[in-house]
């Protein structure tokens, strides 16, 4: 079996999601650096032949390609986490994990897009995206407020799952599009907790307290 290759762009939030899990699970891999900006290499014929969506990230192992951050996270957790915790497959923890993974692919997209508009100067209605991102963060903060009251520290289970990992980057990077953390006290505590987990890595825009 050949090495797992991540098609990655350093400043891309979704690529960071996958780098983060690769690091936290200690998975050996190679990186193919895609010239996303300004080259738009992910839309080149060579890369479209691998991922017809023309998006990042995607991974390739032997002849198999998996695209979509949430699917890649689920794939890596299912195959590389012997303890079966990052993607719990039984009971209510599975359902909650999938629900919040879906939230990342749904309402939270506004935050991902807002950052792209703010940082990469791609087209988009920044103020509308910011309002939707704030609404998504409020849903998350309300959820974690209740979780905390009920004695839980993580989104979906009593341990961190790929739901937490998928949601963390948008909140950690929200200052890139001018949404501060003060309004979301429960998310602040959750982010601090997650940062202390073994294997956590940052990306540009997430301070590394040297």
């Amino acid at each position: 079996m050949s090495a797992l290759t991540l098609y990655n762009y350093e400043l891309d939030e979704n690529s960071y999601r996958v780098r983060l899990l690769l690091s936290m699970l200690g998975i050996e891999h190679e990186i193919y650096s895609v010239n996303m900006l300004p080259g738009r290499e992910e839309k080149s014929p060579a890369l479209l032949a691998l991922n017809p969506c023309g998006t990042l990230p995607f991974i390739k192992q032997d002849d198999a390609v998996i695209f979509g951050a949430e699917a890649i996270l689920a794939h890596l957790a299912r195959n590389h986490d012997a303890a079966g915790k990052w993607l719990p497959i039984d009971g209510p923890d599975f359902s909650a994990t999938m629900m919040w993974l879906g939230f990342c692919a749904g309402p939270l997209q506004a935050a991902i897009k807002a950052r792209e508009v703010a940082v990469f100067a791609v087209g988009g209605h920044l103020e509308r995206l910011k309002a939707d991102a704030r609404a998504a963060f409020r849903i998350m903060d309300d959820h974690m407020t209740l979780r905390q009251i009920e004695g839980h520290e993580w989104f979906a289970a009593d341990y961190p799952t790929i739901a937490d990992l998928a949601l963390i980057p948008s909140f950690a990077l929200s200052r890139d599009f001018n949404i501060d953390h003060e309004e979301f006290p429960a998310l602040r505590l959750w982010l601090r907790r997650f940062r202390r987990l073994p294997g956590f890595i940052t990306m540009p825009g997430i301070p590394d307290y040297h």
Partner: peptide, 17 residues
């Protein structure tokens, strides 16, 4: 400016007044 229990020792946050 905040509930006491949401700011851990050795941490900071912003607040508007």
């Amino acid at each position: 400016v905040a509930l006491s229990n949401v700011i851990d020792p050795s941490t900071s946050t912003g607040a508007l007044v």
